[in-house]
């Protein structure tokens, strides 16, 4: 009974009372195995020697990842920065829609210490500069106000890279945020173009 209900549930079929034809076709000779020849295809049992291939999905496709590396203040700053660095544009998902800040919280939290320090110090510096210059949190700044704190991103690229820590953080955050966005399911689903649609040949771990 349970199995029958499960099949009904999976297939969206009506309840048992709506299946009189099937009931009439039940075998009368109990010494023979039940015939499945006349069952509709969706109700035929799988061949006994066939192994199932079930469709599954990665967790971040259905639920949000927990953030536990950055402080609450740093997370707020990163979220606001994400929207500025990679906004939604032309119908394509931006960093916020792609969950890029939450992904980077996870990624940087697993990264070597120098990268963790770069992010934490950079986010604290942005928040400190916002408080100092505008007497409010970075996450409350308008785009124009924030732009004055992101001046390093207007500097031409150089071999030596930015001289100060904030510049180095912003350069890294710009690159990471773009990549985390463009490699996301949300970006690709919203029509964002990416080389080869983001598909690649994956090599599994070998023994």
């Amino acid at each position: 009974m349970k199995r029958r209900l499960a099949i009904q549930s999976l297939l969206g079929l009506p309840g048992i009372s709506a299946l009189p034809m099937l009931a009439q076709q039940a075998p009368t000779d109990k010494t023979k195995p039940p015939s499945t020849e006349k069952l509709p295809p969706e109700l035929k049992p799988a061949p006994i020697d066939e192994f199932p291939k079930l469709a599954v999905i990665r967790p971040d496709a259905v639920v949000a990842g927990e953030t536990n590396f950055l402080s609450a203040s740093q997370s707020e700053t990163l979220r606001h920065l994400a929207g500025l660095l990679v906004p939604a544009s032309g119908g394509r998902a931006g960093a916020t829609e792609a969950g890029a800040p939450e992904f980077l919280d996870f990624l940087i939290g697993r990264s070597p210490a120098p990268r963790q320090k770069l992010y934490r110090a950079g986010l604290d510096k942005l928040e400190g500069d916002a408080r100092h210059r505008y007497s409010k949190s970075f996450s409350s700044l308008t785009a124009a106000e924030a732009d004055s704190l992101l001046a390093a991103l207007h500097q031409p690229w150089s071999q030596q890279g930015p001289a100060d820590e904030l510049g180095r953080f912003l350069e890294a955050a710009k690159e990471d945020m773009l990549r985390a966005t463009m490699n996301s399911r949300e970006f690709l689903a919203s029509g964002g173009q990416r080389r080869a649609s983001g598909l690649g040949t994956y090599w599994h771990a070998l023994d």
């Binding site: 490699n183 996301s184 399911r185 690709l188 598909l199 040949t201 599994h204």
Partner: peptide, 11 residues
């Protein structure tokens, strides 16, 4: 056996 096609977001 050792390779398959995957989307980058599934990594």
């Amino acid at each position: 056996r050792d390779k398959s096609l995957k989307a980058v977001y599934d990594l």
